[in-house]
Design a protein around this nucleic acid. Sequence first.
DNA 1: GCATTAACCACAG
DNA 2: CTGTGGTTAATGC
Length: 224
Amino acid sequence: MHICQYCNKKSFATKKLDQIELEKLGNNCNQVTFLKGDRIMIQDALSHNIVFIEGGLVKIHASGPEKEQILKIVKGPSYLGIPTVIGSKTNKFSATAISKTTACFIDFEVFKDFIIQNGEFAYEIIIDLCKNELFSYKKCINQAQKQGPGKIAEALLYFSEIIFENSSFNLPLTRYELGNLTCTSRETVSRILSDFSNNKIIEVNSKKISILNKEQLEIISKKG
DNA sequence: GCATTAACCACAG
DNA sequence: CTGTGGTTAATGC
């Protein structure tokens, strides 16, 4: 059992719960700590839990016809698996920690009761789902229409602005994984990164990447 | 044809 | 795991 009342990492939705509901949540959720590489959710497993990532970085991936596909990188605080628990019996994707991550597993029946009984809670969940859907649309367009440099520029800006909120960061993926995420090959990632580096748009030191010319990167990302 | 883009292969560090 | 060079295929002037 977990004391949710005093948790300072509540989601926007759980901030809308009253004391009684928080107590109920606490009695029906459990916190787990994952290390880099640990699997948080396994595709095809039955799941009755909503996962809330309190903090840490998580890789969302699913198996395709020939290989595992990285769908996106998510930073806590964030819910995982709301669509897969509500819309399906089994998980339609896997989640793997790529840094130390704490997550709360919430019993779905309790989560469902909150949605049905607390409109403000439900509304916050809907906002979250909407944002995710729009993100998917955007990623689909990027993937279909942008060329290599545009895709990589987009990914670098995503890490810089959304994930790390810093112009300089340590890439939490290998070149192969970045290629997989952006739907290109590892060789293309290598070449584009050194190309950006030669043009003084970014600075690369193995995993450490600093964005030097954000405007230029945005132009490349935008025009594809 | 010729240029561009990017995947695949191979090899070195 | 990564960077680079050669090769090949698709696509667009």
